[in-house]
Design a protein around this nucleic acid. Structure first.
Lengths: 361, 361
DNA sequence: CGTTAGCACTCATCGTCGTCGAGTGCTAAC
DNA sequence: GTTAGCACTCGACGACGATGAGTGCTAACG
């Protein structure tokens, strides 16, 4: 290849000519809004590309050869390939501003001063689903950073009690447990007091180890049946760490998209959405395309789970002091309105960061 | 009409001849398992109906005239009408026994002694969905019967606190609220103590009125900013009564049924399932067909909501001391395996009753 | 007189076939 | 380098006929 060709090497990706970028953009935009393969004529008729259909056809053939476009069948128009979407998202998408109404709705969510962190996350996700017509998946705050604020045991009757754990973030976790037989109310109280003085401020993840290390011996001094008490407290603590809260919203929005008119496809996706652990894995998967904003775009097969291999998932994480707390994601077809969604997500990410900072003093 | 005809009047419903009942049963059973219109020949070939296709055709024509059967089009077989299903459920369905495995699975759920009431209900519903391949809807216990067990206010920082309400049934409700400015920790404590001594044992529904009647004056003696405190407590109490917990399970099971291959239909149903208040209305609607067992069968248009006008909903309520607490329902196509489902529900209903009795001492 | 065999008739389903048109690739002219 | 012209491809769509399941009716049967 001669050096005169306008093809340059840039970051391992062959640089496209300005015209190719223009046409690719037009095709992706067009396909995103129409969901139909786009032909050379319709591109030519648009105001922003001033070439004849024939010229555009030539460029399209080149773009296809380069892997940015695909042809469903010979006599159809072109649709973007995964690579095409990726290039679009990385280099072409115009981050134009959001409508005032959208910004307003987003901001208003963070305006009410006093709400639990989880509610804000949940509410944000549901608003995103409404604004975009996609499905939102929110992964509630994990307990990496959180510490024990308060522990309590309330007897309901002779053999049952409710155990309540409150974290410093205001999260409340509760569980009904059996009271080991032969334990008096006063002894229960002693144990609870002991646990509170010893464990308040301890990170939740370390609670269990702490329980054995520091409390075990001491408890046996004050209380009979110490062993039973400890194992009871342990059942309370178990289970929490594994399961995080997942909030779904706008699941029926999916059904409006033409690519999800097939019941089988819906079913596989839905089964994924119903199965929390798998979902957490999908949404929490470490992303390749972090660009500093914390927003990740996973297109098609970039997703780890086969069920959404023709979906795109755009996620934003929220964090405090650099510590990642959770994730909010939007799930839609690969033919997603990237510009709008990425914009929204950036807004949300910012607002959420401010909110979190304020929340943690 | 002569008195010799074997047609009798019984409870307003014209009695069917034994042969008609036999044939109707065969048709419904057949249609339930095949989902295809059933013809005279296939009924004749079954072991249990010893008549020729021609005879059966005659009876089928009669049954159609009486409104128990329908014909999708002229040259197709017959399918049961709503009236046909109703008659089948009321008079024909054989309540044969459940398989040992099913009974075992159901009983095992109630075997573990110590679990919160809500968990049991939720778990039961999800097991039902698995056993039947339908969608289960469980309406968690309301708070009619429940009383306040404990109230607590935990400050998280200077201006926020978590309020926690525990009921005598072990249900925990929590909310993050703003602390009115200028209130000291000791004052907060006083208020909480006062509320606990005054309100423990009070039914949740009466909490708010009680709050004003008994507490208001007294509080102002002890505490400055009494008015702010009261309105804070009120925000805690508000919102609870309106929204009850609804647990869904097996929502994707619906998609296996041939009648739900249409995306539009799925969508309307799903939108109902997503909207908790409407769902509560549907499942909690007072039923016509209570037969003493507390099990209700609502077939097709008997359901109040249009979205499920071609579904059947079978519900069982659970209660304590005759006080209705909540409902568990199974939603499937009108072509539902009534025998199996009704059997299961009766089992569940019984077990649940025993459990509830034990739970409330 | 109830039951059944026989038969003509209906109608949804399914595969075939030709038309239509959107879109392409190539070539030659500008 | 760009564009007009043209032959070609191929899916979508509607018409058409064959197929077959199932019916209603009539007449024969025990």
């Amino acid at each position: 290849m001669g050096t005169k060709l306008p093809i340059l090497i840039f970051g391992g990706m062959r640089m496209l000519t300005e015209r190719q970028r223009l046409i690719l953009t037009a095709i992706v935009d067009d396909y995103i809004s129409s969901a139909e393969p786009v032909g050379s004529r319709s591109i030519s008729k648009r105001g922003d590309v001033g070439y004849s259909p024939a010229t555009i056809r030539n460029e399209m053939a080149d773009l296809e050869e380069l892997g940015f476009l695909e042809q469903p069948h010979t006599s159809a128009g072109r649709i973007p390939s995964h690579k095409g979407y990726r290039y679009y998202v990385d280099h072409l998408v115009r981050l134009d501003n959001l409508s005032k109404e959208e910004v307003h709705r987003l901001k208003s969510m963070f305006a009410e001063k006093i709400t639990a962190m989880e509610q804000v996350v949940q509410h944000t996700a549901s608003t995103l689903a409404q604004l975009t017509n996609y499905t939102s998946i929110a992964l509630g705050p994990g307990m990496f950073d959180t510490t024990l604020r308060h522990f309590q045991l309330l007897p309901l009757n002779d053999d049952t009690a409710v155990a309540i754990i409150v974290t410093n973030t205001g999260h409340v976790e509760n569980k009904t447990v059996a009271i080991p037989p032969g334990i008096s109310t006063s002894e229960l109280e002693k144990v609870v007091n002991l646990l509170n003085t010893k464990l308040t401020g301890v990170p939740l993840i370390k609670l269990r180890s702490q329980l054995y290390k520091e409390i075990g011996d001491e408890m046996s001094k004050y209380v009979s049946h110490a062993q039973e008490m400890i194992s009871m407290v342990e059942t309370v603590l178990s289970g929490d760490e594994a399961q995080r809260e997942v909030y779904l919203s706008g699941t029926t929005n999916m059904l409006n998209q033409p690519e999800f008119q097939d019941v089988d496809r819906i079913k596989t996706i839905w089964e994924l959405l119903e199965e929390t652990p798998a979902l957490i894995k999908v949404i929490g998967a470490p992303g390749a395309a972090d660009q500093g904003t914390g927003i990740q775009v996973r297109i098609g097969q970039e997703n780890t789970h086969a069920a959404i291999s023709n979906c795109s998932l755009i996620t934003a994480t929220y964090s405090v002091h650099g510590q990642n707390l959770g994730t909010i994601g939007l799930l839609g077809p690969t033919r997603m309105e990237y510009a709008k969604v990425i914009n929204l997500m950036q807004q949300v990410s910012q607002q959420l960061a401010v909110f979190m900072e304020r929340y943690h003093k």
